[in-house]
Design a protein around this nucleic acid. Structure first.
Lengths: 252, 252
DNA sequence: GCGCAAATTTGGTCATACCAAAGGCGATGC
DNA sequence: GCATCGCCTTTGGTATGACCAAATTTGCGC
């Protein structure tokens, strides 16, 4: 299985050991770029398995050490999905991969309430802009989607588990309105990162009902094309939720 | 040099070879968690050098292969800064590290104009919220900082290179107002990611002057505590800039 | 065909070796 | 006494080869 190797790194024409020397120190990086190119070019299709390491060894003329390092680096970049014992799976880069890559560090930033609050405030800021945008720009089908999400939310008031899911789904619709694929991904990231603390929040049908009513306020303001009211309702909603989350942190 | 090892992974008490087996397959991950813990606990201070690989080998009782993989993974998480031939430097996790981790994938998303537009639209959305926030909440010293940035911007009109820097700096002040460390980091990330395309944008003192005037409009609206005007000025400013950037992409 | 066991692949880890660059050390010269 | 240069040691980057256990494939028997 011989592949056509792009010429920006003259990999094909160089013999084994001189590899590192020529590229100016970085054998693995060169392999990374090679495989990267094959992924974006589609030569390695999304969802396909990466060839076995021993094949890559003689495809690129490097040692297994280097191949493995390259694979690890590609996995950390989100271009490969590598479960412990299985063959790595090719993943074309997407927004979710980018945010997942950030996730590893974000975990550390959320160890104290300050970090959580910062992230949550950022979310409030962004989501405030989103409800304004929705109030001004939402199309009929966006409003309809919001209405459906709101109805599902109301129907789940007595089921806190389900209520949480429909709560998230309602907010998700707001991120869909601008039809910018980055935004839904950011919402998924926010949700995933904050979920750990969110689930600790005390829940009850009464609380759920209050939250539903806030959602209804937001929806009504959007329907009325009133961005200020929509933003105010959202801010009030999210800030109230923070008070509950804050209580889950130990200390004064 | 024997260190106290946290107990959530019983590393200290297990003998070498059974390592991978007990942890359920993942020697490197266990080492990652160990070193991670030492970094957040401060046992490995920020800016310090990581011990030599050969030391880590017998500190953790694993092979060099595993140590190197662990180091690589920590570097990709932003906890270590590892230049090719040098000793890795410890970096306490920060927002910038999180965004830098995402940077690897973001590069791929910005290969076509659609990806750039999506990112840029996201920035417009967020920055719109920021100018609104500034108009409503900015303190005297925030306004003063904006005024200084604006003056520097005006003074650089005839120097396109310097103008770009002061342009970025002016916008940066907007991200500082909420005093949320995430936001300045996001601005740095936006700037770094979009810089590649931005620098291709044709520049001239005339264009600089127009941009400066837009900045002045934004500043005036903030000073007048008029969020709607501020947001409108910003949107107009950024959308106009996009028209220029868009031209740098090959046409259909 | 189909399921199950044996044989083969293949990823994870270890051990060892070599090279070249980085870093430390001592001699040299001012 | 201090700065500089060069040698020696340390240390990271890579290559090899081996072994194990899990994953996958093969193929046998039903």
């Amino acid at each position: 299985m011989s592949i056509v190797i792009p010429d920006f790194v003259g990999l094909a024409c160089m013999t084994d050991e001189t590899f590192a020397l020529r590229t100016g120190l970085r054998a693995a990086d060169a392999v990374v770029r090679e495989i990267e190119a094959r992924i974006v070019s589609g030569s390695l299709a999304d969802g396909a398995h990466l060839p076995p390491e021993r094949d890559l060894i003689d495809t690129y003329g490097v040692s297994r050490t280097v191949v493995r390092e390259a694979v690890a680096r590609l996995a950390s970049k989100g271009l490969l999905e590598s479960r412990p014992r299985y063959r790595p799976v090719v993943r074309r880069p997407g927004v979710d991969a980018a945010l997942a890559a950030a996730g590893g560090v974000v975990g550390h930033l959320l160890r104290d309430s300050v970090g959580v609050k910062n992230l949550y405030d950022t979310r409030i800021l962004l989501e405030g802009a989103l409800v304004r945008h929705a109030a001004l720009q939402a199309r009929k089908d966006d409003i309809a989607a919001l209405a459906r999400a709101l109805a599902a939310n109301e129907a789940a008031i007595d089921n806190s588990e389900l209520f949480y899911a429909t709560d998230v789904a309602f907010h998700a619709v707001l991120y869909d309105v601008p039809r910018n694929p980055i935004l839904p991904a950011v919402h998924r990231a926010f949700t995933a990162w904050l979920a750990e603390h969110w689930v600790k929040m005390p829940r009850s049908p009464e609380r759920n009902r209050v939250n539903f009513l806030r959602h209804r306020d937001i929806f009504a303001a959007i329907q009325d094309r009133d961005p200020d009211a929509a933003e105010a309702a959202l801010a009030s909603h999210l800030n109230a939720a923070w008070e509950y989350v804050r209580g889950t942190f130990e200390g004064p």
